[in-house]
Design a protein around this nucleic acid. Structure first.
Length: 205
DNA sequence: ACTGCGATGTCCT
DNA sequence: GGACATCGCAGTT
């Protein structure tokens, strides 16, 4: 038998990738590699947990009640970053989905750090275990130094992009309800890689 | 192990 | 004035 040792080619995802239905995209993003280059240093994290948000039928989506200056990016081009500031301290990062004028996005909730871990550690401040570096939407923004400056940033760029990474089998994806919201709590729009220790720890119910 | 709470920008009523 | 797609600390079981 033939043993192939070639690595699959890690390709940057084209903008068409982000035109998938938001729920499909949220699932499809699992296993993909999120890369950010800061001062020549490459930071890479594997996406292990996502949540979908859509203006239609989802009262917890920021755009549910229409367009505001804050959520405007969600109405724009798919494949851009929607970064918002919340609780007066934290940033969260989303990938805009759906065609223009349809507000929807995928919240990145957790990454498995793959490269540039020292930089992430420095950005997070203290002595934090690798498991907890990016195990939460605000944590990964801090680790990757993502803030409102990156709001609206395209993923077809040199310094921030997502690449094909690893293929995740459908059987390895857990589907549950979303975390940290009070409306639309029954929608099964949270996805994570089963048995991956880097997902955020909160209960799914 | 679990629980309560403080930090406070932006949008809502 | 209140809610919120959060996190980490402090105090308690």
């Amino acid at each position: 038998m033939t043993i192939r040792n070639e690595k699959p080619v890690d390709k940057i995802l084209p903008s068409a990738f982000y035109l998938q239905d938001t729920l499909t995209l949220a699932k499809a993003l699992l296993g993909k590699h999120f890369t950010r280059i800061i001062h020549g240093k490459k930071l890479i994290g594997k996406i292990v947990e996502t949540e979908a948000y859509h203006e239609d039928g989802d009262p917890s989506c920021h755009a549910h009640r229409g367009k505001t200056p804050r959520n405007a990016v969600m109405f724009g081009q798919p494949g851009c970053l929607y970064v918002y500031f919340t609780y007066g301290m934290h940033h969260c990062m989303n990938i805009v989905s759906e065609p223009e004028d349809i507000a929807a996005a995928v919240l990145i909730r957790a990454l498995q750090p793959l490269e540039g871990i020292e930089v992430m550690q420095k950005n997070r401040g203290k002595n934090i275990s690798t498991r907890q570096l990016c195990s939460g939407p605000a944590k990964l923004c801090q680790a990757f130094d993502i803030s409102k400056i990156q709001n609206g940033h395209s993923l077809q760029s040199k310094d921030i992009y997502i690449s094909s990474g690893e293929n995740i089998n459908d059987d390895d994806i857990e589907v549950t309800t979303r975390i940290g919201i009070s409306k639309g709590i029954d929608l099964p729009w949270r996805f994570y890689i089963k048995n991956n220790p880097y997902v955020s720890k909160l209960k799914a119910l």
